[in-house]
Nucleic acid binder design. Structure first.
Lengths: 91, 91
DNA sequence: TTAACATTTAACCTAATTGTTAAATATAGT
DNA sequence: ACTATATTTAACAATTAGGTTAAATGTTAA
């Protein structure tokens, strides 16, 4: 189920862009919202999808909630792809 | 758009399983259909999604259409993920 | 050309996804 | 307690996705 959740989370351009933003460091929900032409409610749901997929982690700091990237789960995709490609030797 | 198509194609368990099957060599549409508990029409649409994403190639041989894996487009996902992970050094 | 087989396409249904606005919740400051 | 701010959740509409059956297409062989 993990791979399924991860791939589904990645199959949306806004969510991928959120991950790209978080590459630069943690951001509050509001800061993320400001980067997109959709409502905060919409971004909030995207964030929850990413969180369910464990692609991001959140921590509240006062009235802000900060999100940060958790790229470690992407390893599973790498392994799946590598297996599919049948990369016996990669020199 | 390529990455989007690829990830969307991968975000379905049946389509991923089709790719896994094709790892073992090319198969006709009918052989693929036999592996799943859904109709041929349904598999046919899955195949067209995979084909649009260029993850598979088809060649007709007589009355059969054979499908084979084209894993090369997965490279793009690998690159995207690698970039996201910020793998500066991977020892 | 007709019949049989392999596969795709069309029409339709239902469920899931994504967006919106409005209401709810959580925190901080007065 | 009240107000302002940050964020999420609920309810709804529109779109997309995936399944089905039935019709259409392409190929082979009689």
């Amino acid at each position: 189920m993990a791979l399924q959740n991860t791939l589904k989370a990645l199959a949306d351009p806004i969510r991928r862009e959120i991950l790209n933003l978080l590459k630069g460091g943690k951001m509050s929900a509001g800061e993320i919202v400001d980067k997109f032409p959709v409502t905060g409610a919409s971004i909030s749901r995207h964030l929850s999808v990413l969180k369910d997929a464990d692609l991001i982690r959140d921590t509240r700091e006062g009235k802000y909630i900060f999100y940060e990237l958790n790229a470690s789960v992407l390893e599973e995709i790498m392994l799946w792809i590598t297996d599919l490609k049948g990369d016996v030797d990669n020199d």
